[in-house]
Design a protein around this nucleic acid. Sequence first.
DNA 1: CGGTCCGTTGAGAGTGATCAACGTTAGTGG
DNA 2: CCACTAACGTTGATCACTCTCAACGGACCG
Lengths: 251, 251
Amino acid sequence: MQPPFHRLEEFVELNAEDLEFVKAWGTTCRRIERNRAIRREGDPVEGVFFLMSGWVGSSIMLRGGKRQIVKIHLQGDMLGFPSLSLAAAGETLEALTQVDICPIPNRALANLIEKRPRIATGLLLSSQKERVALMHKISWIGSASATERLTAFLLDLYDRLEAADLVDDHGFEHPLTQQHIGDLLGLTAVHVNRTLKELEVLGYIIRDKRRIRFTDLKALRMVAPNFPPKYAGRDAWLRLAGEKANSTDAR
Amino acid sequence: MQPPFHRLEEFVELNAEDLEFVKAWGTTCRRIERNRAIRREGDPVEGVFFLMSGWVGSSIMLRGGKRQIVKIHLQGDMLGFPSLSLAAAGETLEALTQVDICPIPNRALANLIEKRPRIATGLLLSSQKERVALMHKISWIGSASATERLTAFLLDLYDRLEAADLVDDHGFEHPLTQQHIGDLLGLTAVHVNRTLKELEVLGYIIRDKRRIRFTDLKALRMVAPNFPPKYAGRDAWLRLAGEKANSTDAR
DNA sequence: CGGTCCGTTGAGAGTGATCAACGTTAGTGG
DNA sequence: CCACTAACGTTGATCACTCTCAACGGACCG
């Protein structure tokens, strides 16, 4: 089975050496059980993680015991990157399913930036993509109804799962409780329940245990507050590096 | 007057060559008048901008004519970085005051990544800092009251203005209408007005035209939903590159 | 002097939170 | 295999915060 490098190769074309480099990450993977923390807020930042498989939630604790889940990470994502700018980890990374993660220590990252500029560029652009995603999330958390937030979230998840080839028959299995979804969207679990039911009554989705099937994607995309932006693709690297990219590409 | 490089030097120590490189940006600055767009959503992404002086708002348009202001940029910020990952600009950059911006074309950025790894690292870490800021913003937009959101915003602005040395007598001048603040926080201008008045009645702030003075910072920080995180500082680069940084540092 | 933008204040309406109860599912140990 | 338990999902009633609509005053500008 191919490791999930689709995110790394989204913006840059990796050559043989690059691939060898990232494949080395896979040699030190760790398995973490469901509901265990990978890293807690305040822990020292020893590096980042590459998520090989499973679902991970990244959350921030608020006063009063509330938590805000900032992002659901899927396989192929880099975890803990934002905390590189902090003196101590600023987010709690929690395994929502059994997961396999590969720690990438700071030293290895530094080595990467120096030796493999194309991977570094890919990471830089991926970070910008994450910023765009956060910006959009702010835009619909800030001024959208519960129904709109929920559809935006579901569609985002759908698109990302599709990119990771985890969508089956217009639906997917997920490990999220309604409390999780509430913490993601800034809603209470009770209201998430009502809103999910509303979408089901409208005939847009069908729920069965922890499986969601999308029965009217078109209608859902009409409900959502903003359509997903179009990402740059591989030519972003071309735009950045000009003709350089072509001449150094091994394949 | 020294150009505002405080953000560039936050995570890395720039040597003489690095400084020469970034100072070159200043030679192609453009002046933009108040209320004019620097770049609109959908425009081609020809590069990023370094903000020499003035206030810039970065916003996303939503359906129904609503706009979400995602971030207020101050001098020393890099503008338009997230759009590097997009096929077309994903945010509108609007001058809130008269501003001076220095365009940095994609070609120059590529050159920078290749030739000046320390600046590149600084930009990468700055991007992560922005991600942290966005994550925090999500956390208080998602589940905080209007009062909490407003105080969080005011304090964030205060801290950033202080870093740019623009705070005077615990207060500052700003160009924002209450509509702007509403679009930032996901509130209506009417409610922003009531909430500002509430903070004034409580004795936490004093307003006079477009000037805000903070009369009880301690109380305000108690109201805000989360304290600002502690950033890594210059040793972040050390953490990344190990002893390498010391040996190559010119000063 | 008129016009426009911005700030201020009031009254009423609606969305989502809160509190509470109950049903259902899954996991545990006997 | 069953009893027990805790976590999760569902539904109802009430309440509070914020939106909406509306009117008016002040500041700035042509």
